[in-house]
Design a binder for these strands. Structure first.
Lengths: 138, 138
DNA sequence: CCGGATCCGTTTCGATACTG
DNA sequence: CAGTATCGAAACGGATCCGG
């Protein structure tokens, strides 16, 4: 997930995260994990945006290499794989919520359900905790 | 800044922001604006990552079209342009800080100065306010 | 000098077809 | 179901040129 070219990163506080955040499809997969409850390859594939199979495979493996998700065999089907967020991945929830809030504020007609946004504004910590709990017990 | 292909975005709370966030160079420019105090074309050009002139021009115009930055003539030189964050752009500060915190937590050896990260953890609101103030009076 | 625009060779991405 | 292989399209990097 890191850049191949080892540019100096001196005082830059966010460069590290850029390879992960600076990619549309990666972000989309994380969204599906966090907000959509998706866990299987086939589910990610069916998102509205229409990710290609090779791209999905690539991003999943990069997310795994970055320690953000974990791949395991679905105990219920034995033939499917399950992708779940690691602790590092769960720590992205606040970031994703920040993104939701920003989008909702500056482009209200698109995006997040009003009720959810209001709750997010009033009880950020509570929303975070709830999402984490839901994801953790998955 | 929006996608050309108008995909359905139904319940997706963050799709709107993806075109902006899902691009390495755009994010890098915003970083330079928020944390590095850069304001001129030439300054962005000189970042460690080495953005090309055509790419930079493209991202700046897209950021302007998205209402995140504003372009004006430098009153001090009359030949330079100044790029500053709009209100919408300033509202990205919390998001960027979330990113910093995440990177710092999960990849400590790279990235943000320790002291800054600690202050961020202890007084998030204060850090946000301070950065906004610094950027606003610029 | 500053802020781009343009052209071009190279790399990377991604849609589709195909496979274990 | 979960991916690879292929191949055309798009993005990128670098050099160069140009208007103010």
């Amino acid at each position: 997930m890191r850049t191949t070219k080892p540019t100096r990163r001196s005082d830059c506080p966010i460069c590290y995260s850029l390879d992960f955040l600076g990619d549309k499809w990666t972000l989309l997969v994380v969204r599906d994990l966090v907000f959509m409850g998706k866990r299987h390859y086939g589910e990610f594939l069916k998102s509205d945006e229409g990710i290609a199979t090779n791209i999905l495979a690539d991003r999943l493996s990069k997310l795994e290499a970055a320690g953000i998700i974990r791949k395991s065999v679905d105990p219920e089907s034995r033939v499917k794989n399950v992708y779940t967020l690691t602790e590092k991945g769960l720590d992205l929830v606040p970031l994703m919520l920040e993104l939701v809030a920003w989008g909702a504020k500056h482009d209200p007609q698109t995006g997040a359900p009003k009720a959810f946004v209001r709750r997010l504004r009033e009880d950020r910590a509570g929303v975070i905790k709830e999402i984490r709990k839901r994801l953790a017990k998955g």
